[in-house]
């Protein structure tokens, strides 16, 4: 039996070699650049405008930990610009599932900055595409080197990741120089979830573990939407989203998350203005 198993895993390894042709590190004029194909698949080939003055994307130049790479998206629209950011799509070109996340920005929440954490499998371009109320797409990109050493885009303690399933935490941060009068707030929502990619074959059963991740997260102040995220397997385990917004005077913060097995996780918190 163990010999048989061995043979199967050898075969699986070989299939991997045959199917997964080694990818060259991404470079700008590379004919293997996946971006044109991604524009077609994700954005239906809509025109991409230069987003340098519209949207900022910040990531470390090197993915220190392949499983937890911080990314910050920032609106660069100047005050007084009549346009509004409707949604931001985050694309990690060389990941197995390049569409990492799609953020919908609440119409009245004035979200100007979103930080989360993603997995990075390879040397890759990372694109942020903002859709504005003028109906156009604006793109900015950065480049991230894959992590070295034994870092991998997988859970470090798979048991812990399961044991936190569905736990939600909310935190407010004091923004320096922004008192309660400005209404500007910074908050964070964390959700315990293993975010399994489903890309790994179990060596014993030879079956792929099913993907298991948060695919939708919605956040409201009272009943007014602040931010919603559609996520995929490129979002790190225990999804964590930190963002700025403008308070509408609400007293409650609410979050609801759904995962691919249909679990719904809900929580709400009283907004504490005393620390602002």
């Amino acid at each position: 039996m163990s010999g048989y198993r061995f043979r199967l895993s050898c075969l699986a390894g070989l299939l991997g070699v045959m199917l997964g042709a080694p990818l060259a590190p991404a470079a700008a004029p590379d004919p293997n650049d996946p971006w044109p194909g991604l524009v077609q698949d994700i954005f239906n080939n809509r025109a991409m405008n230069d987003g340098a003055d519209i949207i900022g994307i910040e990531m470390p130049y090197r993915a220190e930990d392949a499983a937890i790479v911080p990314v910050t998206l920032r609106s660069k629209l100047p005050p007084g610009d009549s346009r509004r950011v409707l949604r931001i799509t985050l694309v990690i070109d060389q990941n197995p599932a390049p569409l990492a996340a799609k953020f919908e920005l609440g119409p009245d929440a004035n979200v100007s900055e979103i930080s989360t954490r993603v997995r990075i499998n390879n040397y890759t371009d990372v694109h942020a595409v903002a859709e504005l109320s003028d109906g156009k797409l604006y793109m900015a990109k950065t480049y991230v080197k894959a992590s070295g050493g034994c870092s991998a885009p997988a859970a470090k303690t798979a048991d812990d990741a399961r044991s936190r399933l569905g736990q939600m935490r909310y935190r407010q941060f004091a923004r320096p120089g922004q008192g309660p009068a400005s209404g500007a707030r910074e908050a964070q929502i964390m959700i315990g979830h293993p975010s399994n990619s489903g890309l790994q074959m179990d060596q014993v059963t030879q079956l792929y573990t099913p993907a298991f991740f948060i695919d939708r997260l919605q956040i409201w102040q009272d009943d007014s939407p602040v931010l919603a995220m559609e996520g995929g397997i490129s979002i790190s385990e225990d999804p964590n989203i930190r963002f700025t917004y403008v308070s509408n005077g609400a007293k409650r913060f609410r979050a609801e998350a759904r995962d691919t097995e249909g679990h719904i996780f809900r929580n709400e918190w009283k907004i504490d203005d005393s620390s602002m």
């Binding site: 991997g16 997964g20 080694p22 590190p25 392949a66 499998n121 390879n122 040397y123 894959a146 070295g148 034994c150 991998a152 885009p153 997988a154 859970a155 798979a158 790994q200 074959m201 179990d202 060596q203 014993v204």
Partner: peptide
């Protein structure tokens, strides 16, 4: 075994590059 399953293919690819 679980660690080798979830990380093995990634390690091989990453160290082939290096």
């Amino acid at each position: 075994p679980r660690a080798l399953t979830t990380r093995g293919p990634f390690y091989i690819e990453a160290f082939r590059r290096i």
